[in-house]
Computed example of a mutant assay.
Amino acid sequence: MEGTVRSIVLTKGVPDFSEGAVSFDEDGHLERGKTPTVMNPNDEVALRAALQTRVRHGGHVSGMSMGPPGYGDVLREAMESVYTDDNYLLSDRELAASDTWATAITLSAGLETYQAEVGDIDLVFAGFKTADGETGQTGPQTAWAMDWPIVTHVVALEVDPDERRLRAKRLVEGDVDEIETVEAPLPCFVITDPEFEPSYRQASHRLTRKRLREETRERAADHDDHLTTWNHEDLNLDPDYIGLDGSPTIVSSVDPIPKAPSEREATMVDPTDADAMDDVLEELRPHAAGTSDHATEAGD
């Protein structure tokens, strides 16, 4: 549509690595079934970039993820937090155990199916890397599979829908961090850098964002009505080239995740040991009475 931008944001669910949420087995390996799944933090940055583009130029934003049915909750979060219009989940057993290459092949098929059934895509946004894999390969590999240009480490962007051009500032890290400005034709991929910050300087943009937030609350409440799930047959994918069979990555070994060290030293005390309990009381007495060394000195 002339003058507007249709965007897709690639998202992924990752284990919640916050303190107390992660479950490990006795060998220190992550137990995914017992650890909550949340949206990959870097994908939230990509979503904010897509929202900024939507606010400035109008159009449509869709979320897309590949994973088990539970990833629908991750896509719901995308709708609630950055107001996606609809979401697409690529999910079935044939896609399980995909490495980044097989994931990129599946995502590219999802994008092609979207274009055939929904509409032409102008921009595909993806996060810098995932919190669990840390490879940063899926976005670029998907762009390669689509044969579209890609701009990485984007910290700011402008889109000219009529001229079909993207102008972006990207962070170049080296001995000294530099910012370079690049241009690319649409459609293209945008890999956002964690340093990306959306900008809403115009009052009209802030009002549009507020309106989108209000509209989304009702839509998110009925998220399942706005979620489309495609399996490998819907995407016309050969099982030999997806999932574990289509993943060339060979993992030679896996190191246990180190457990976080305790921040405090603890002394175990047997409550039946009278002498030990007397020591505990002596330690607590000044604090309980409000007469710590500093308080005593102040009173003197």
Score class of each variant (00 low, 15 high):
1 M>T: 12
3 G>Q: 06
4 T>W: 00
10 L>N: 02
12 K>L: 05
18 S>A: 15
18 S>G: 11
21 A>I: 07
21 A>N: 15
22 V>E: 09
29 H>W: 06
30 L>D: 12
32 R>F: 04
35 T>S: 05
39 M>D: 06
40 N>K: 07
41 P>S: 14
48 R>L: 13
52 Q>T: 11
54 R>Q: 10
54 R>A: 12
55 V>E: 05
57 H>L: 13
59 G>Y: 02
61 V>R: 03
66 M>N: 05
71 Y>P: 00
72 G>S: 11
73 D>S: 13
83 Y>M: 12
84 T>A: 12
85 D>C: 07
88 Y>W: 13
89 L>H: 09
90 L>V: 14
93 R>V: 06
93 R>T: 11
94 E>H: 11
95 L>W: 01
101 W>A: 12
106 T>R: 10
109 A>N: 06
119 G>E: 10
120 D>I: 06
125 F>H: 03
126 A>D: 00
130 T>M: 03
132 D>H: 04
132 D>I: 09
138 T>Y: 02
139 G>Y: 03
141 Q>K: 08
143 A>R: 05
147 D>Y: 01
148 W>H: 04
149 P>N: 08
151 V>T: 07
151 V>F: 01
152 T>L: 04
152 T>H: 02
156 A>C: 06
160 D>E: 07
160 D>W: 00
161 P>S: 09
167 R>L: 12
176 V>K: 13
176 V>R: 13
177 D>M: 12
179 I>D: 01
179 I>T: 15
180 E>C: 04
181 T>S: 10
187 P>T: 10
191 I>K: 06
192 T>P: 01
195 E>K: 15
196 F>W: 02
199 S>N: 06
200 Y>F: 15
205 H>D: 15
208 T>A: 13
209 R>E: 12
216 T>G: 12
218 E>T: 14
219 R>P: 02
220 A>D: 01
225 D>M: 07
230 W>G: 10
231 N>D: 15
234 D>A: 12
236 N>T: 04
251 V>K: 05
252 S>I: 08
255 D>F: 04
256 P>I: 06
257 I>Y: 10
258 P>Y: 04
260 A>M: 05
262 S>Q: 13
264 R>G: 01
269 V>Q: 02
271 P>H: 08
275 D>F: 00
277 M>V: 14
279 D>A: 15
286 P>G: 08
291 T>H: 08
295 A>K: 14
296 T>Q: 13
298 A>I: 11
299 G>S: 11
299 G>Q: 09
300 D>P: 02
